[in-house]
Design a protein around this nucleic acid. Structure first.
Lengths: 210, 210
DNA sequence: GTCTATACACAGATAGAC
DNA sequence: GTCTATCTGTGTATAGAC
């Protein structure tokens, strides 16, 4: 094995192990909270000795921070559909679809995010004050423009955004409650489709865009 | 001091101390999560030695359970307005007002509830399967009746209920995020009023009741 | 880069004097 | 009913052999 191969292999191992640890950590942090999660549990779920976690992530908090950042990235990309849309129906409709899909595919991440914010955002406060604040202001301006153009009713843009976040993330964060009320069964494909349709119908009609 | 007085006094002390502990516990559990909360922190906040907590509540989990139950009670009473209302506008409008007011007055309780559900309801699963399931089924029937009577558009009652819970509780659970996006300031009276109005307008128009 | 053994801190819970 | 001192378990983190 040449020096180059050794380095590239080391890089590959690192990449794979970090990914496995992050995936396990996301699940454990979501299900137990930061305080309830243990490095031992995460290690077991990742199939690695506990000490290896500390080799890749110096502290529990550093690992947690990475998990939260990962989620935030996914979050932001979901909003791409918001831009370059002709009006609120297309933009908000696509945004709801995207966020609902994230709730379905990344329920753990959504829960970790919710928990982080609920506890006062001790780790990602800076993101809230920079990236999220800018993002929100930009989208609020866009919504206001649609209102001025008569494409939707005069709704406070911020409260509309809160409603979009709340309703879509609810299907991840309160998924257990929804499942219980669904007779203990996860929502089927059909039911997810109905959920998306309900949310879109109520909100789009609610803002006078339909 | 007679025997009766002594007993009554003992009862009074117990009642007051339990109330203080429960209030402190609600705050600490909300801000740190179950795993992150410590009996020491709760004791300090309640102004009592740690051992006293164990005198009134045998275990941390028992204390936590009481806190969650307390919240659930408040929750259920907020729905009284739902019944005995002539139609969806009055019922749902009053329900939104009540839930928004709870989010404002009991943000800690809402967070503890959210955290409990997010972690799979390890403590109050039985409530979800009995009381909440019955409550939900009853309100869903009422909503279906309004639909059949042509008082609102044909919306899936369950998804409407989820939306009501999500939007109203969001103002408590994600209050920190909202505050950050509000320039670091808590919502003012005016802003809370605007929030309630926005939620009611969008949802009531969204379900075709306006 | 991996993993066993362990140091160190702190949590929940209890004993027992007051 | 109150509170100090303490037991015991467990968690994070690290040392050091491999």
């Amino acid at each position: 094995m040449t020096e180059v191969e050794r380095i590239s292999k080391r890089g590959a191992i690192r990449q794979e192990n970090e990914a496995r640890i992050l995936a396990a950590a996301e699940k454990v942090f979501a299900e137990a909270g930061f305080g309830g999660a243990t490095m031992q549990l995460i290690a077991d779920m990742a199939g690695l000795p506990k000490a290896n976690l500390h080799y890749y992530f110096a502290t529990k908090e550093e690992l947690y921070r990475k998990v939260v950042q990962q989620i935030f990235e996914i979050w932001l990309h979901a909003a791409d559909s918001f831009d370059n849309a002709p009006g609120p129906v297309e933009a908000i409709g696509a945004y709801i679809d995207a966020k609902m899909e994230i709730s379905r595919r990344h329920p753990f991440g959504s829960k970790v995010w919710a928990s982080e914010v609920m506890h006062g955002a001790p780790v990602i406060q800076d993101y809230l004050e920079t990236t999220l604040r800018d993002w929100t202001a930009g989208r609020a301006r866009l919504i206001q423009k649609w209102i001025d153009e008569g494409k939707m009713a005069p709704i406070d843009p911020n409260h509309l955004l809160y409603m979009l976040w709340a309703t879509t993330q609810h299907y991840a964060d309160f998924g257990h409650q929804i499942e219980t009320l669904n007779g203990g069964m996860p929502l089927s494909d059909q039911q997810w489709k109905a959920a998306k349709a309900s949310v879109k119908t109520i909100i789009l009609r609610g803002i006078g865009a339909l």
